[in-house]
Design a protein around this nucleic acid. Structure first.
Lengths: 123, 123
DNA sequence: CCGCTTGTTCAATAGATATTGAACTATTGA
DNA sequence: TCAATAGTTCAATATCTATTGAACAAGCGG
């Protein structure tokens, strides 16, 4: 089962920039970049907003060609489409991610995660 | 006489991307990049929309820190803030401009210009 | 099979954004 | 001083976008 994604050549600069022009989605991308390697699903973003809202933003990112969403059981695995974006717009994602990883919003939820983890261990 | 511009460190990634997420403004930036060196004023953009509309979009670009607007008599000279943007977000503008210069909208008005020029010469 | 987890879809709403024409400001050139 | 030029401001509007809660779908574990 696969969700609809644009092919590499269907990705437009306008759509990419419009998608990233929202602070929530920019934070999602920054967070995804930090977690690269680790599987990331919708639940990981709940600190960014309600379940419904995250679903909405992730759909926007997917439709713009910024993320890839793979269905895995009841969850979805979200990854950045680094390779495709780099072919279409060389250097673009790198420069955006470089700044996005340091966004206050991203740091905030990383801190929240560490705290939750620490508490889980303490229990 | 100077218009209000954000300082380099007041420029945020979110604002820049939101400003460039509009196709008209993206075309303006692409066009500005093509004209780099030559002075460019609001009148040059009239093919992108009404006078009022261009004024609106140029204000957005200026407020986001993407362009600098200098008053010169009754006109304003618009330039890209390449240096400032490159310090804040290295590589970002370059990668965007590289794609934006080839936008259909940009090509269209360059063609229109050449035609107008040819006609002016013929007369 | 039942309930829990994970997400999506839908309808409603509030807020932001783009676009327009009319009126206005300010500078320049005759 | 007058008229033309170059842009802005304003109010109105139409459209789009983000956000929410309720209802739904689908896989997983007991």
């Amino acid at each position: 089962m696969t969700l609809p994604h644009p092919t590499a050549d269907q990705i437009t600069l306008s759509n990419v920039l419009a998608a990233l022009g929202d602070s929530t989605r920019l934070a999602i991308v920054g967070y995804l970049a930090r977690r690269e390697g680790r599987p990331t699903m919708c639940l990981n973003f709940t600190d960014f907003g309600s379940k419904t809202n995250i679903s909405y933003h992730l759909a926007k990112l997917r439709e713009a060609g910024i993320t890839r969403t793979e269905v895995s059981g009841t969850s979805r695995l979200i990854t950045l489409r680094r390779d495709d974006l780099d072919i279409r717009f060389p250097g673009l994602l790198d420069s955006i991610v470089a700044a996005a990883v340091d966004l206050p919003m991203v740091k905030k939820i990383e801190d929240a995660e560490e705290e939750a983890l620490a508490q889980g261990e303490a229990r």
